[in-house]
């Protein structure tokens, strides 16, 4: 386990900035004097309290399975891929949101894109190909994706037209159970 390098930190934060508007709260100091840091272990990036990260240094790299919240994986080409485990953090400071109706929740959780007919409401002034967090109508975050159309364009779209391309959904906790945390 180690801290992220300059380049790695840039790629991670760049990806997070697609979905979040409030990034500064991520590294803001906590009331007890502690703060959250980013740590890398087995090419996975973890968002963890500094005190816990310091404790984890006593565990060898191979023995350490996971700590804190796994944000995603750094690929071998140097890119960063967000995992569904990062959803609670993304949902805290989401830049753009899409709420989907009950009839659209199940198809989304089974891995399909969001179509216009399933959208209950969406945040205004959302451009094309911008990261957004998908919520149910009861404000429960279900996953995240990338907008297929801008809000104005999506208004003119037919009901079967795709509004948001799925990136990750809560169904992955079951579908990718084997590979989500290790491997």
């Amino acid at each position: 386990m180690r801290a992220l390098t300059d380049e790695e930190m840039k790629t991670v934060l760049d990806k997070l900035a697609n979905y979040m508007s409030d990034l500064k709260s991520l590294i803001a100091p906590l009331d007890d004097g502690d703060r959250y840091v980013f740590r890398l272990n087995h090419s996975r990036v973890y968002y963890v309290k500094l005190s816990i990260a310091n404790l984890a240094t006593s565990i060898s790299r191979d023995a350490l399975l996971s700590l804190g919240t796994c944000l995603g994986k750094l690929t071998k080409t140097g890119k960063f891929r967000l995992h569904i485990t990062a959803l609670p953090i993304l949902a805290q400071g989401a830049r753009h949101k899409i709420w989907i109706k009950e009839n659209g929740a199940q198809p989304f959780l089974y891995g399909s894109n969001v179509v216009k007919a399933h959208v209950g409401r969406w945040s205004e002034d959302c451009p094309e190909h911008q990261g957004c967090v998908v919520y149910s109508m009861a404000d429960i975050p279900l996953g995240f994706g990338v907008t297929a159309r801008s809000t104005t364009e999506a208004r003119r779209l037919d009901p079967t037209g795709v509004v948001c391309f799925r990136q990750a959904d809560c169904g992955e906790y079951l579908r990718d159970e084997d590979t989500l945390f290790a491997g």
Binding site: D6, K10, D14, N18, L23
Partner: peptide
């Protein structure tokens, strides 16, 4: 925080 502000501005 410097990296963060840079990235935020860019985004």
């Amino acid at each position: 925080s410097t990296i963060l502000s840079l990235i935020l501005a860019e985004k």
